[in-house]
């Protein structure tokens, strides 16, 4: 390396040089992509029909529900927080969406109501944690419990409402989006990811998210408002979780609060497996997209092996630990001192 730098003229050297950004993308990006591909190949070999187009389409649809919720979780994790109200908001979005639609309300209004509720609950999470400096773990669990209780009282804990027919089609693995052979919900997910990426890269609050997550005290001295950014991140998480819940109604047909339950673990796992640090300040949106894909592939693979749901859980947990150990780790203390 040093030999090259002394012999090669500067202009050529510049061409050979990998920019830090590219280097970062190379060291952070491929391993997640490799994981997604590797699990796919394993699945293809182990489970008959795993790689069939219909199966792939179905996995993408399932990944998009998780992906949208995990996208929101990513914002919260980037500021060093955690959002445990995600399952409750998914349940709420699901029940409210199905019920209001079942009562004949216009879908645009329904979506608006669902989003606003998620945004408000999330913003409350953000403000309470930042103003009173309470741990988000407790706060979001509590607000989630409040939301869950309210929804259960409203519905008497029964299956209720029905999804509008367009939503069923929107989320059906069999449907396609114009020329693209995947369901519209998948396109919506990826579009949201692109918007989120632009937001964190090219907007002021987006950059401030990273600073707040990396060093709260220094961020304050760099004019980053902890309240605003917390409210934004938790608000986005809430809105995206309730949106995911609403979309799930198309998949489940009716509203049921408990559809959100698996997403407590899955939304956080998708973020971590994607490579966003739970300590805050490091990570990104596209990583979570890959993390969501990885998880859905894994669960499909385990289901395909006809494991009992208990065994599935155990294996999934073990695999997540391994994957996280592979690249979700924080730097060694030795490298930091």
């Amino acid at each position: 390396m040093s030999a090259i730098t002394t012999v090669v003229p500067p202009r050529v050297r510049k061409l050979l040089e990998i920019s830090p950004r590219t280097r970062g993308a190379l060291t952070n990006g491929p391993i997640q992509i490799v994981t997604v591909v590797a699990i796919f190949l394993v699945g293809k070999a182990a489970v008959p029909g795993f790689a069939q187009p219909y199966s792939v389409k179905a996995m993408l649809v399932i990944a998009s529900f998780l992906g949208i919720a995990a996208l929101g979780q990513t914002f919260v994790v980037l500021i060093g927080g955690i959002d445990l109200s995600v399952p409750a908001l998914i349940g709420a979005g699901n029940v409210i969406g199905a019920r209001l639609s079942g009562e004949g309300m216009n879908s645009v209004e329904v979506i608006a109501i669902v989003l606003v509720i998620g945004l408000l609950v999330g913003a409350v999470n953000g403000l309470v944690t930042s103003v009173w400096h309470l741990p988000p773990l407790v706060v979001t669990l509590a607000t989630g419990s409040v939301v869950g209780g309210a929804v259960l009282i409203w519905t008497n804990a029964t299956l209720s409402g029905s999804a509008p027919s367009w939503l069923t089609k929107f989320t059906s693995a069999a449907s396609s989006t114009g020329p693209l052979p995947v369901a519209p919900v998948v396109i919506l997910w990826l579009a949201l990811a692109v918007v989120a990426q632009v937001f964190i890269r090219r907007s002021r609050p987006g950059r401030q998210i990273f600073m707040l997550g990396a060093n709260r005290q220094a961020a304050e001295l760099m004019l980053v408002s902890e309240r605003t950014i917390s409210a934004v991140c938790f608000g986005l998480s809430g809105a995206l979780a309730s949106l995911a819940g609403f979309l799930l109604a198309g998949f489940t047909g009716a509203g049921l609060f408990t559809v959100g339950d698996p997403y407590l673990f899955l939304s956080i796992a998708a973020v971590v497996i994607g490579g966003t640090s739970l300590l805050g300040g490091r990570g990104g949106v596209f990583r979570t997209v890959l993390g969501s894909l990885t998880l859905v592939e894994l669960t499909t693979l385990l289901v395909g092996q006809s494991l009992s749901s208990a065994a599935q859980q155990a294996v999934l947990g073990a695999v997540i630990v391994c994957v996280t150990a592979l690249y979700g780790r924080d730097r060694n203390v030795r490298d930091r001192v």
């Binding site: 002021r204 990273f210 600073m211 990396a214 060093n215 004019l223 980053v224 300040g281 490091r282």
Partner: peptide, 25 residues
């Protein structure tokens, strides 16, 4: 400073509004 973030972010954070055109950095 935030030692895990790039130099440029540590530099620009409080004055980012100068780099915006139409709200986009």
């Amino acid at each position: 400073m935030a030692d895990v973030l790039p130099i440029i972010d540590n530099y620009s954070m409080p004055t980012l509004d100068r780099d915006r055109i139409g709200g986009v950095l």
